[in-house]
Amino acid sequence: MNRFRGGFEAVPRWTIVVAAVGGALVLLPLAAMATRVNWGGFLALVSSESSVAALELSLRTSLAATVLCVLFGVPMALVLARTSFPGQRVVRTVVLLPLVLPPVIGGIALLAAFGRQGLLGHTLEVLGVEIAFSTTAVVIAQTFVALPFLVLSLEGSLRVAGTRYEAVAATLGARPTTVLARITLPLVFPALLSGAVLSFARALGEFGATLTFAGSLQGTTRTLPLEIYLQREMDPDAAVALSLVLVVVSLVVVGLTLRTVPDGQASDRGSGRSFLGLGSRSGGLS
């Protein structure tokens, strides 16, 4: 990305050294964990009944959470990017809050809202909806923590894409919904895709809010991270093996995200399609 045609060095050499140390900080623990894997028993460990149930539950709930993120996140990003209203900065800050909030706090907050004794608990009980200790609780917790990824990614991209084409379409008589479907969404599709994939990854890794809000029961609420946490106590080998599975899944997911962002396009458009859209709008959290 820093290849300049003039042939001069793009970055001072010392930054490369520091960058390598930073990279090692991330890579070393993961590599060290890989050395702990008991390869002989790997397959048996990751294919145990509880492991498979946890992986299956994780994939199912993360997928559902991703769908919810797209469903709610796209309109949220549109409203934040294309309209202006009093208190918009505050709203944006609150929407992005789960990004920086310790997940256990998210869990406590979700309990306060959707728990049996929570704000909506009684109403939900009357409606016959039981959220506590259900898979629904897991999906809600995952959506809570993953939603900001989609909103942030998409809003940045919407702002960079600008409103020129949309204005032209509107003057030609297209209705707002037509403009959205035919112009706006296709324009920001890569950002929508990478936002969705990141939301999925975040949902897959969700632990704290789930444990606090949903509990831990095989096949119902015990997702892969919770299973790893429990296995750590009785079978560290299984915990390491499952951790490796989650690392690989996450790697694939992040790899996919980066592939949706072609290098050239990203720099041409002022990183409008950059990772999370952070490059285009540095004041995102202010």
Partner: peptide, 15 residues
């Protein structure tokens, strides 16, 4: 047939 199997007794009590 519990609805949740927690990691510690304090977690059970909290629920």
């Amino acid at each position: 047939s519990p609805v949740s199997e927690e990691n510690s007794v304090t977690d059970v009590l909290g629920k």
